[in-house]
Design a protein around this nucleic acid. Structure first.
Length: 709
DNA sequence: CCCTGCGCTTTTTTT
DNA sequence: AAGCGCAGGG
């Protein structure tokens, strides 16, 4: 967007309307980040003190970027002054809660439970409430709990509203889940918002104090605000009403997480006198790409009607690529990328100019393999992250126990890792003691030595473990954290544990590198933070684990692989949107109701509008799932984009038939001439490139199979 | 208590 | 294909 005019008329309007509620309906690529940062600068110019401005984003990465841009704009003016508060909803709430946790009966050093911890907790809660034979899966329970928390329901209220049996079971497990969180002195992601709301309702003075810290509130990606976030926002902004929200209803892709488009659609009603500014001039994409996006999104019924105008004329038409299967898809696309990197057939391209976008986290596998073979640097955003690795989680759990010994999920994880003779049976005995006494597991460990129910010798081992933790705990804050962590890892001999668990020496070594990397990140944190503390480090890893500075650094010279959800807000010169198939995009689980399809369509729209200069959409005729190959039907969106509504309907019908009968042997989804690869280019002239399985492809595949064994 | 191996399920997106 | 839970032998 470097070549956009300084500010166009609408942008200027949004930037200079300084007070009262303001809704900026900003289409994709219309410069909304620019509007927010310029607005912050304008507010400061008008005399508002920077720290009295709060800007809220959805990801830490977005917050970091906005902070940098804002500082670059206002730098001189704020010398010596505190900067504006720019953070995500979650870190904002953590900061609020740390100040008032005691009022809610939580320790100030409460732990933050991420998705992995939530699953552990969900699993154990389900074990406790199991009735009869059918039970929920942890993932299903978490989805239920998330929905309840979003609506602000307590476990009791959830029980009252439960209708189906699985909901009753879920509500029961919810009660356990929440009780365990509480006794662990821990909050999950939703709790951070929920407890903030609770704080604001039950302690008006705390709410007043927090709301009084700001005169202006700005919110990015407002279309993805859920009920909890909305209510926290309301509490912070309702006094001064200087609330500026920026978003695009066409890019609302978090409905499954409770995001309500209603919030952005109804903003003018919720905030009387709200001014509305529309940004419709797109500075990102070339005209053919944008027209494809416009055609697609017009198939959605419930939306603010708007049409983006391309400021960049000319450009190449998007291409549609057809492949035999997911392996051919990755081979074909990576070969094309290789040739682009060499500068064949056009200007030379850097890896960082390109992105491969997909719907689900299993899709990048094939691409990773090919990219590694080709020696092309890439970063996989999201998915199995560094912090999901077993060895990293183990060490983090040790650290979390040091910070907050009541943290039960972490304590249970490390109490016998590496194995120190405290088996599952003994842990169960200890747990019973804790439950009966109504105290955290940690608090009953001192009595283990004299516990008659523990097998001989176990009590002493439990006590040795407790003393080990106490010893390190006492040293917190007195010496560098990285040093403490290194020593702890050595004392428990975690390296030996890895050698035991991974018989392949190379793998054990690689795993230990992960541990060392974690220690490095602690050292980096200590160097960077103003007031380094164990709590601060853990908070960063929990809230920002997936996007760190180092990740940013890597991304700056590598090709990006990521989900459509992660791609929101970003842009790339060249985009490959892969796996354009029924069941994948739209995803099978979203097809059930009409509303689901619209969100999938928006997701596709987000993908298309990430591209600046070129866009390729690919699909495979078949795809392997659990070792079995199944035929695929081209996505209805491919047809919709090209104005072939009739064919889109047929693809949808074929998909519905294939999914309901669930037959892998279903007849070929549609006659040969239905395939986009054979269809005539639509108006706007999409150029078609066919890539089937060639002899070269086949032999290459043979090679890899041979080589992999 | 610890380890191995068998069988069963798995189908979305994330702060 | 892969990860998890569980049973059975050291």
């Amino acid at each position: 967007m470097a070549d956009a005019p300084l500010l166009n008329r609408a942008q200027r309007d949004a930037v200079t309307t300084l007070s009262g509620p303001l809704l900026v309906l900003a289409g994709a690529g219309t410069g909304k980040t620019r509007v927010i940062t310029y607005r912050i600068a304008e507010l400061i110019k008008s005399g508002i003190k920077p720290p009295r401005i709060l800007a809220v984003t959805f990801t830490n990465k977005a917050a970091r970027e906005m902070r940098e841009r804002a500082i670059a704009l206002i730098g001189k003016r704020t010398r010596g002054d505190k900067p504006p508060e720019i953070s995500t909803f979650h870190s904002l709430c953590v900061r609020i809660l740390r100040r008032h946790a005691r009022l809610l009966g939580y320790p100030t050093d409460f732990s933050i439970y991420d998705r992995g911890d939530q699953e552990t907790l969900a699993r154990s809660a389900l074990r406790d409430v199991r009735v009869g034979h059918d039970t929920l899966r942890p993932g299903d329970l978490l989805a239920l709990i998330g929905a309840w928390k979003n609506r602000g329901l307590s476990p009791d209220q959830a029980t009252d509203t439960a209708e189906k049996e699985r909901e009753e079971l879920g509500a029961l497990a919810f009660a356990r889940y929440q009780a365990n969180l509480k006794s662990s002195g821990a909050m999950d992601f939703d709790d951070l918002l929920l407890k903030t709301e609770e704080l604001f309702t039950s302690h008006p003075e705390a709410r007043f104090a927090e709301a009084s810290r700001f005169d202006h509130v700005l919110v990015d990606e407002y279309q993805d605000t859920n009920g909890l976030q909305y209510r926290v926002l309301l509490a912070l902004a309702e006094r001064h009403r200087n609330l500026c929200v920026v978003g695009d209803d066409d890019q609302s892709i978090y409905g499954w997480r409770g995001a309500e488009v209603a919030h952005i659609l109804g903003f003018a009603k919720d905030w009387t006198g709200a001014k509305v500014v529309r940004l419709e001039e797109n500075y990102r994409s070339t005209e053919p790409i944008l027209s494809l996006a416009n055609t697609l999104i017009q198939h959605n019924g419930s939306r603010h009607p708007k049409t983006l105008r391309a400021m960049h004329q000319g450009g190449t038409p998007p291409r549609f690529l057809r492949f035999e299967d997911e392996v051919a898809e990755s081979e074909g696309i990576v070969r094309e990328i290789e040739s682009r990197l060499r500068g064949n057939g056009g200007p030379r391209v850097m890896p960082s100019d390109m992105a491969i976008l997909f719907r689900t986290n299993e899709q990048p596998r094939a691409f990773e393999l090919e990219l590694r073979r080709a020696g092309i640097p890439y970063v996989l955003v999201g998915g199995m992250s560094f912090y999901d690795r077993k060895e990293v989680r183990d060490v983090l759990s040790y650290l979390r126990v040091l910070a907050n010994p009541a943290d039960e999920v972490s304590l249970l994880r490390v109490i016998n890792t590496p194995a120190r003779g405290i088996g599952a049976g003994s842990v169960e005995v200890l747990m019973k003691r804790a439950v009966t006494a109504g105290v955290p597991l940690w608090s009953v460990l001192p009595q283990a030595e004299t516990d008659p129910d523990l097998p001989h010798g176990v009590g002493a081992r439990v006590d040795a473990f407790r003393q080990l933790i106490e010893r390190f705990r006492a040293r917190l804050g007195r010496e560098p954290l990285a040093q403490l962590a290194t020593e702890l890892i050595a004392t428990v001999d975690y390296k030996a544990e890895l050698r035991r668990a991974y018989r392949e020496p190379a793998e054990a070594e690689a795993r230990f590198l992960g541990v060392e990397e974690l220690v490095n990140s602690i050292a980096l944190y200590e160097g960077r933070a103003e007031n380094p503390s164990l709590l601060g480090f853990l908070e960063e890893t929990a809230l920002a684990g997936r996007d760190s500075d180092t990740e940013d650094e890597r991304q700056s010279h590598a090709l990006t692989l990521m989900t459509l959800h992660s791609a929101k807000g970003l842009e790339f010169l060249h985009v490959y949107l892969v796996g354009m198939e029924e069941g994948l995009l739209p995803h099978a689980r979203s097809v059930a109701d009409g509303r689901g399809i619209e969100e999938e369509r928006r997701l596709c729209y987000v993908g298309v509008t990430r591209a600046r200069e070129t866009l390729a959409l690919s699909f495979a005729k078949g795809r392997t799932k659990w070792g079995k190959s199944r035929p695929s039907i081209p996505s209805r969106f491919l047809f919709e984009m090209r104005g072939e509504t009739e064919r889109a309907a047929r693809a949808a019908a074929a998909a519905a038939a294939a999914f309901t009968h669930g037959a892998p042997e279903a007849p070929p989804p549609e006659p040969q001439d239905e395939k986009p690869a054979k269809a005539k280019p639509a108006k706007g002239g999409a150029k078609l490139v066919r890539r089937g399985q060639t002899a070269g492809t086949a032999s290459k595949r043979g090679e890899r199979k041979g080589g992999a064994r």
